[in-house]
Each structure stands twice: as C-alpha cells, then as structure tokens.
Design a protein around this nucleic acid. Structure first.
Lengths: 242, 242
DNA sequence: CGAGAAATTGATAAGGGTCAAACACAGTGG
DNA sequence: CCACTGTGTTTGACCCTTATCAATTTCTCG
C-alpha cells in the first residue's frame, strides 16, 4: 500500500480478471486478451471511509471511478449552499461520466460507507478506445445508459411521493440483484435525508412512508436494513417505469 | 425531393459546409477536410410539419437526428397513457443520444412547428469515429453534455414553480442566443401545456406565472412570443444553476 | 363564420413541507 | 459502567404551494 495526496488510501490494483464485478462494470462483455488491455488501464484503487470524497466539484476531470465495493452519493451544492443528492452509486457503477464534456467534475461524490473505487485514467481509456472499437462502443453505451437513467429519474418527479419511494426501493432491489445480492433483503447505506433529497422529499415524508409501507405489510424496516415482504405490492405502488 | 415511408418529406442533403449551424451542431470544431467526411455521413434530411414524429418510442435506433430548423419535443408516454415532456430541441441539437445503449428510442420526438432534421446514420458515424479520434471524442462529449443537462434539469425540481419557470425562460434565451438569435425576444413554439409538463407544473400554474411576471414588468407575453424586458430580474427569480 | 382547442382566471382542496418535540443510537469522556 | 452530547429518525400539528375543478375568453383553422 501507498498513500497519495495525504488523504485517500491508495492500493496497487490486481486485475479486472479477478474481480467478480467485471461482468457488469466497465469491462462488461470483454474477455482476454482485450480484458487484459483494459485491466492495464487501472493501476491503483482507493479505499475510502464513509464521508470521504471520491472527487469534488470543480476538480479537474482526469479519472473515471468504478465502485469496487461499498457505495457513494453524488451531490451538487447550489449557490445557496444546500446539498442535493443527484445519484447513488453501487458496486460496478461508474462515477464521472458527465464530467467528460466540461473537463471538470460538477459535483462531489462521497463514500457512504467503507468503499473501494478503481481509478480509470480517462485519457488512457480514450487512447485505448481508438485502437479498440468495441471499447469505444462500450464507453458510448455507458454514457448513453446513464443518460437514459437520468431521464427516467427526471420523469419520476411527475408522480406522488409514495410512488417515487416505492419505485426507488424496487429499483434498489433490482440493482442489488444485478450484482449478485438479494433483491428482497438489502442494506441502504444512505440516510433518510439523502433518500429524501434524491427523491425531492423531506426526510420526514420519507420516514412516514417507510412507516406506512411497514404498517401495510409491504416491507420491514430495521434502521437501514430493508426487507421486502411483498415486492409485487411495492411495484404496484410505484409508478411503472416502462 | 423524394418521399420515404409514405409520410415524412425527405430531401437530398447539401452539406454541413453550407449550414450556419455547423459551428454548434455535430461537426462543431471540425474543418475541412474532416468536415467533408462528416458531411458525407448525411445523405438526406426530413421536412416535418408540426405534430409529425421524428422518431417514436420502441422504434429501432438507426439514426441520430440533428435539428436543422424549427424545434421538437421529446415525450415519454407512461403506462397509464399520459404524456410527459422530457426535453425540447432547438436547431443544432441532437435527438436520439439516449437510444444508443438500448438500440431503440425510448420516447417520441415530435416537431413543434415546421421543422427540418438531418438524418445521421449511427453505424456510419461510429465507423467514421474509429478512423477519426476527434470524432469519437466529439460523440462522447455530446452525450456527456446531454447527461450534464439532464442532471441540471433533475436538480431544478428542488425549486419552486416560479424559480423553475424563470430558469426555463432564461435558459431558452441563452439557447437562442447560442444559435445566433435574440436572447430577449423569442418565439416559444411549445404550448403552455408542454411547458408545464416539462417543468412538472399544470398549464394553469404556468399561465398564472406568465401573468405574474408580466404584471411585475419582467417580461411581455404575447401568445407564444416572449420579450424579456428585465432579464437580470428573471435570473434573480430563478434558482441559480451554477 | 363556427367549432374545438388552448389559454386565462377564479375558487377550493390536498399533498407534502415546515416547525416542533420526543426518541434512538453511537461515540466520548469521566 | 454510565451520563453526556450530537446526529439521525420518527411522529404530530399546522400551513403553504400548487393541483384540481370550473367558467370564460381567446385563438386556430377548416
């Protein structure tokens, strides 16, 4: 191990070949020998404690960060100083895609728990993409996918608080399942405040809705642990993101 | 001229070299001889009447569309059948970027007035990008920029109706200015209903706010024509998208 | 000119915000 | 081991912004 910048713990990277997230992460769809070329892009990864920043608003964009374990939130700070949660990141997801065009991050990405992130130098990625058309395609797909997700999030605001929270919990289940965890039984690393900010609700409203869902037997909440007792009921309470 | 598909009027394309929007559109930053290569991608353009669709939800993704003149709205239709406006497109802007990853359009793009759109075959664009790294970069930048815009739109929902409408009108002015038109004096091709849907407001609320802004001397509304009398006042009424 | 759609304006209501208080829990220090 | 403190969560009471419903006017276009 070596430290860098006086803050973030930095570790030598082994390889995507040994990472069980490779299937869903940046190198999704790649196998040796191309996978090896992609792996070589990544020299180090960070280990961050809860609250530490992966990147911060205004910082020059040099790296994409792949969540290797743990989770993070993306927050934008308005001129008035209040934070807004724009997104959450789970393992296998890529932080920094919307910094590409402007050349600087427009938000802080903050670890929500002990989190490791792989450091992907963007200039190297681009150079490799020039030689590897499938990687060019993968990069374009990744950003496009993120764009689609953001559009869906935007559309969700047309629905009620209950529909939004139900959809959020359902979606989180799907995302956990996608990375090989339980869709019905998971741990929400973010606070009620963060959930509220993301869904454009107050923490009070989020809390009330959790209680309501629990009273109705849809789920069981225990602090940050969520157990979906009746996932189909949850889906029917949500708006139906087609 | 030739017609195609029995519906959309289709015209032989001349070239980006003769288009005054080239500066802001897909070929932004390119000059001959590269500009010529990019121009060759575009064989035809459509002339659409108000209400005609550029693409529709579920259709196989083959083309990006660049608005050449006129304007369009992007709408998603929920399962319950109600339309939601996700975006507006002005000349120089590209429709279809979030269809790349899934291979099909997830929304209808509908002309708001007489509108011409250049047809950009995506597979050809990708092939050219393989040979032309600057074009690869341009494509990635375009999608990333759109992602950033969507994130900003998402964040706007944290603010009041008045702040959102003020920001919208201010933003529209900026976008018109960007393409060489007046920022203070422009024509809004979309209905109050569309504006409301985009901002997550009812048309009644939009109408009331227009009246309010007019009463306060910030702008003059005449049907769809907007004259910003006091743009700085409008900015201070908006949330401040940093 | 007439009919239907869009826009405006008014009256009322509700969803979710705001304010406030109580509670739970983690970390700290005595 | 137990207060002490600060943060996050829950619950209640009240209220405000914006939606809803309704009536009227204006515009569009055949």
């Amino acid at each position: 191990m070596s430290t860098h910048g006086g803050q973030k713990a930095r570790y030598q990277y082994d390889a995507c070949c040994y990472c069980e997230l490779a299937r869903v992460c940046l190198p999704s769809g790649f196998f040796n020998p191309e996978l090896k070329d992609i792996t070589r892009l990544i020299d180090h990864y960070y280990l961050l404690q809860a609250g530490e920043k992966i990147c911060f608003s205004g910082e020059k964009f040099r790296y994409l960060y792949a969540i290797k374990s743990g989770s993070a939130k993306e927050i934008t700070v308005s001129i008035k100083g209040n934070e807004q949660v724009a997104d959450f990141y789970l393992p296998g997801e890529i932080v920094g895609l919307d910094a590409i065009s402007t050349g600087k991050y427009s938000y802080d990405a903050i670890a929500l728990e002990s989190t490791t992130v792989c450091i992907i130098p963007f200039s190297l990625l681009l150079m490799l993409a020039v030689k590897m058309p499938q990687l060019q395609r993968r990069l374009v797909d990744l950003i496009s996918q993120k764009l689609l997700d953001r559009t869906r999030a935007l559309m969700s605001h047309h629905y009620s608080a209950e529909q939004r929270l139900a959809a959020f919990l359902s979606n989180m289940g799907d995302r956990y399942k996608y990375i090989g965890l339980s869709a019905k039984n998971y741990y929400l690393s973010m606070s009620r405040y963060d959930i509220g900010s993301y869904l454009n609700l107050t923490p009070e409203t989020v809390s009330r809705l959790f209680s309501k869902f629990q009273d109705e037997g849809i789920l069981i909440v225990h602090k940050k642990h969520i157990q979906l007792v009746n996932p189909s009921q949850l889906v029917s309470r949500s708006y139906h993101p087609h």
